[in-house]
Amino acid sequence: MDTRRRPAKLVPPFRGDVLAVDFLHAQPQVVLAGTRSGHVCQLDTRTAPEAWDSMVFRHKSSVAHLRAVGGFDVLAAGPKNAMCIYDLRFVKAKEQKAGEKPFEPWERNTAAPAVEFPGYRNEAHIKIGLDVLTQPGYGHGVVAAAHDDCTVGLYSLRDGSRMPSGDVDKSKAPGVVKAIQFQTVASDQHPSLFVGVGSVIQKFSY
């Protein structure tokens, strides 16, 4: 009989390709992984892989972007115009309410979000730009998200509403914007939004 110790079989705690990762603000040792299947998984780096949770919640589309936006709040965004914030402390299944139209097949068994972004427009793209601004001094935070009509929208992390944003609203790229980032450069006191538009990078300051 072979008495040598065999290595544990490690089963990945996710379903489908991992498209996005981030670290939870309230517990920075916890990695969150967003998958093509829409599942968001929680991976605690202090424990062995076989003890990792298989799933925290399911978003209603592939998770092209996943960002921790404060405490236990996580923003997930992807195709099917699906961008939401979930509070990991209170994740529960989304329920069909009386009078609402029936769920689409891809909406079944998904989590109920804490905040939705009804103005977000991305029907089918995985490689599409998004960034968040959560540093103190800028209200409840802002998400800049590219749309599939080649524009960019700014949204409030507090309630999901679209924020009037002047020149950003007027800008339109020759194709879907894939690169967006908030950054404070050395000569500025406040962050600016940098957007890859065709062969140039546009800077929007506030």
Results as ranks from 00 to 15, higher is better:
residue 204 F to G: 01
residue 98 A to Q: 15
residue 151 T to C: 07
residue 57 F to C: 15
residue 168 V to H: 14
residue 30 V to G: 08
residue 11 V to E: 10
residue 22 D to A: 12
residue 190 H to R: 13
residue 118 P to K: 03
residue 160 G to H: 06
residue 33 A to N: 08
residue 169 D to P: 03
residue 9 K to Y: 11
residue 133 L to V: 05
residue 16 G to E: 14
residue 7 P to V: 04
residue 121 R to N: 00
residue 43 L to G: 05
residue 145 A to S: 04
residue 150 C to Q: 08
residue 143 V to D: 10
residue 98 A to K: 14
residue 53 D to N: 14
residue 116 E to F: 03
residue 106 W to I: 02
residue 82 A to I: 02
residue 124 A to V: 05
residue 132 V to Y: 01
residue 34 G to D: 11
residue 15 R to E: 13
residue 56 V to N: 02
residue 4 R to H: 10
residue 71 G to Q: 03
residue 185 V to L: 15
residue 95 E to Q: 15
residue 59 H to I: 01
residue 159 D to P: 05
residue 4 R to T: 13
residue 115 V to H: 10
residue 81 N to D: 09
residue 191 P to W: 01
residue 161 S to V: 12
residue 3 T to R: 07
residue 199 S to E: 10
residue 76 A to M: 02
residue 126 I to P: 07
residue 53 D to W: 00
residue 83 M to N: 01
residue 122 N to D: 01
residue 150 C to L: 00
residue 93 A to Q: 11
residue 81 N to Y: 00
residue 131 D to F: 09
residue 37 S to T: 11
residue 125 H to D: 03
residue 205 S to R: 07
residue 63 V to A: 01
residue 79 P to Q: 04
residue 24 L to M: 10
residue 188 D to W: 09
residue 114 A to R: 14
residue 14 F to C: 11
residue 61 S to L: 12
residue 137 G to W: 10
residue 67 R to L: 13
residue 201 I to H: 04
residue 133 L to C: 09
residue 115 V to W: 10
residue 34 G to Q: 12
residue 103 F to L: 13
